[in-house]
Design a protein around this nucleic acid. Structure first.
Lengths: 207, 207
DNA sequence: ATGTTTCCACCTAGGTGAAAACTT
DNA sequence: AAGTTTTCACCTAGGTGGAAACAT
């Protein structure tokens, strides 16, 4: 991996559930955003390797606009089309992982899960754990890892995107919506998200 | 408060929900213990004051036998009576608060809640977050606070009951059971624990 | 016409006491 | 007879998509 200064490091971040992400990506992934905040599905989960086990790290997610367009789902062709210029980007919200600062050892020991992250379309949200986005825009999550000297560090103050290592995954690109446009996306969300209506345990079904 | 060496400190620990605890105490409080582990109700919740805001602390719960007796609930008189000698005490299990080591500031900022603690009668339990107790014995929870030099401290290794400050609350004494003996206890648990069957929202009830 | 909000039934996940079955 | 284990219906708590109402 390379950080923004181009320093070589051995840090590696691997996206979990790649097959699932790829299925959604293949259909043109949509993420619902609501006023109250909605989780991402799939959730961002990663395996981290190459950290100093005894070092302390911050890890967080930012979500950046892929381009400056507004999109529209065109039904006859069932495709996302550019519908005009995008809104002015909102000030970057970060979602800091709840467990940081964390020892490298602990970050590498298990999957780092960002499933509590929520997306909102509320512009003036100050809700913790929420990231505000424009609807009908194309986004991609970025994962940042930054080493800090001591666990005393207050994450909100220490975070510095310039010195952090950045990781991204093409299959996690999505378009924000307030209601699903592509019914194939809806079907796949229902089929794969245990909280989604329509899910049935096959065993129970056969009774 | 005083620690076991008698050193004067300004640390104070106040039990929350004193009225509720007193109601249970007045009836002879019973706590269910199961193989799988059962939460305490009421849960131990405390307010802590007098810590060094910038210092780091461990805080945990131990549950000690009040005496060396086995108890029995006698129905005609509806009273707990001593039924013989108690079993040999189990090796002390601690329930370390999940957030430690924690800065004094953070411990004092909000209620320190031990509601995830579970009691079990499984003798060879190694389940994290569980404390093994004998059924039909009388116990009292103790809360310990210990200052540590650095947040690097691994709690399990650093815990030292001899240098920690100990706090106890007479109203939290209880007798362990595998099924409630006193029906008044059952009624009060149902009435005050939102998870307990029998609880009904008065508004819904009137429909 | 298109996109958003609100409400809701339906899930998962897990904490309760009751009752029946089991143990000794 | 007395205590324990198992199972279960009934809760809380909160994550879903759908439908209808609403906004622009």
């Amino acid at each position: 991996s390379r950080n923004k200064q181009g320093v070589e490091t051995g840090i590696q971040v691997q996206l979990c559930q790649k097959e699932l992400w790829n299925q959604f990506h293949g259909l043109g992934n949509e993420m619902i955003i609501t006023k109250a905040g909605r989780r991402m599905f799939p959730a961002l989960k990663v395996n981290v390797t190459g950290l100093d086990p005894d070092g302390y790290y911050l890890i967080w997610v930012e979500i950046t606009a892929v381009d400056n367009n507004r999109y529209r789902y065109v039904y006859p062709s069932s495709q996302w089309m550019i519908a005009g210029a995008g809104d002015v980007p909102l000030p970057t919200n970060r979602y800091l992982h709840p467990d940081i600062p964390a020892k490298g050892y602990h970050l590498m020991a298990r999957i780092v899960n960002f499933d509590k992250l929520k997306l909102t379309n509320s512009k003036q949200t100050t809700e913790k754990g929420q990231i505000a986005l424009h609807s009908m825009h194309k986004y991609q999550p970025l994962i940042y890892i930054q080493k800090v000297e001591t666990p005393f560090t207050v994450p909100d103050q220490a975070v510095d995107t310039k010195i952090a290592f950045q990781f991204s995954f093409p299959e996690t690109v999505f378009i924000t919506v307030t209601a699903y446009q592509n019914q194939e996306i809806t079907k796949l969300k229902i089929a794969s998200n245990p909280f989604a209506k329509g899910f049935r345990d096959p065993v129970k079904n056969s009774e």
